[in-house]
Each structure stands twice: as C-alpha cells, then as structure tokens.
Design a binder for these strands. Structure first.
Lengths: 114, 114
DNA sequence: TGTCTGACATAGACAATCTATGCTACTCGC
DNA sequence: GCGAGTAGCATAGATTGTCTATGTCAGACA
C-alpha cells in the first residue's frame, strides 16, 4: 500500500541512497528507482518532487553532479555526495531519530501505575 | 533538542493522547502539555497548530467536545474520541508504521553481498 | 477597577510534496 | 534522413499542514 513521503524526509532518503552507492554516482531515475524498490514500493518518488529536491541539495552544496551518458547512451546527470553532504546526512539521521523516538514515546507510552 | 512535528502526524499524536487518557476527556492545553512532556520536550505544540487540528478533527467526527470548567474554574473545551476516532487512530497507526518501516529499510539496508 | 493569565480561536506566511506539463535528444522504423 | 516514441531532466501551480503572530474572552486577585 502506497504512502506519501513525509515532508522533510525526501532529502534524507536521497542522501542515504547516494551514500549507500559509495563511489558510484547515480542519476535521478536511478535514485528514484532505488528508493521505490528498497521501500517495497511503499514510496513512489514523483519527478516533480525529485528534481526540485536535487536542485535544493545542489544549491546547499550537499551533492554535486556531472553530465554523462547512461548505458544506452542517453544524457543524464550523475550525482554524488560532497563532504558537506555527508555531514548533513549525519545531522539528518540524528534529527530523524529524535523525531522517531519522540513519536514512539507517545504512541507506546511506558506503562505506569496510576 | 527541539524538532518540528512532521506534517500529518499531529492528528495521530492527538488521537493517541486522547485514547491514552481513556475515559477522562482532555482540553486543548492538557493535550498539548501531554504531547510535549511525553516527547521529552522534543515537540512543542503551538496553539496555532493545535486548535486548527482540533477543528479539523471535530469536522471529521473523530472527536467530540463539550464545554466545561477547569479545576481553577476557567472555561475549557473537553475533547474525547468518538468511535470513528478510534477507527481513524487504528488506520493512522498502521499507516505510520508502514512509513516508518519503509524509511528504516532505506536508512538501514540489509547488508548483501555484491 | 485594572492588570494578569489561561484557554480558545483565526489569519497569513511558509515549506515541501504532488499533479500536470513541457523540453531535449537519442533510438528505431521506414 | 525523417518522423514517432521515449528516457531523462526540468518547471509551474495546487495542495496540505505547521508555525508565527495576533486577538478575544473571562476569571482571579490586588
């Protein structure tokens, strides 16, 4: 069953996907496909969400991109993390974890005597 | 360290807080304070977020409210879950869990040989 | 009477995703 | 070599929900 990507997490997912690819830079479609497939098709990354996000991250300096060619010789922009991008990934991971734990505390309150 | 409440989750947190209070209806300030304290002050529920959310949920029929008096004799609106609200809470919990797992799958990919 | 404060409420700003659409350039068929 | 189909990139506008800022009302207390 499909779910929307919560606001603010798309950047995190893209950063993590690029970090997971290690040295190999990915182009937009590859990033989107990776997120969709790893999430078990729960998330669908629309192009109208993906490219603005990549633009934002280019401006922030978190990623850098070079034009290249796909296996079947099409134009594509290959992105990779910068050092600042790795730092941002760390920050975003910590932030997401705080949010996740705070929500968990409310959803599963530790039982306590009246 | 404070974090913003992700879009779409405030309703869930309110529903869960009301459900946790069982029979005792809560007014707005109590709901906000409960969310803030249980989250360890990670979340701060602004009034400008809280009341519109409560209005939405009243319109949806997920909660009902009656005017009453606080312990120190102030006007306050006490909210409690409706049957539809309990069903919505179940749906929202399942949805949140799917999202959480999908994100986890991307953040912590199961290691796999090349 | 006047100030302070708890509690409810609304308007407008803002941010990020989604829907819809368009562009460019390569491939392939004829 | 020319037109149709399509991969990949990109942008505009709508939508949604939270936050900031502000306002109102009524009770407590000096």
């Amino acid at each position: 069953m499909r779910e929307d990507i919560p606001q603010g997490t798309l950047d995190l997912l893209i950063l993590r996907t690029l970090a997971g690819a290690s040295d190999r830079p990915l182009h937009g479609f590859e990033i989107a496909n990776a997120i969709e497939s790893v999430s078990g098709r729960v998330f669908v990354v629309e192009e109208g969400s993906l490219y603005p996000a990549l633009q934002r991250m280019l401006v922030q300096g978190w990623i850098a991109g070079e034009w290249g060619r796909t296996a079947d010789n099409r134009r594509a922009r290959y992105y990779h993390l910068t050092a600042a991008g790795r730092r941002q990934l760390e920050r975003a991971l910590k932030s997401y974890d705080r949010v996740r734990q705070a929500i968990a505390a409310i959803l599963n309150p530790s039982p306590r005597g009246t």
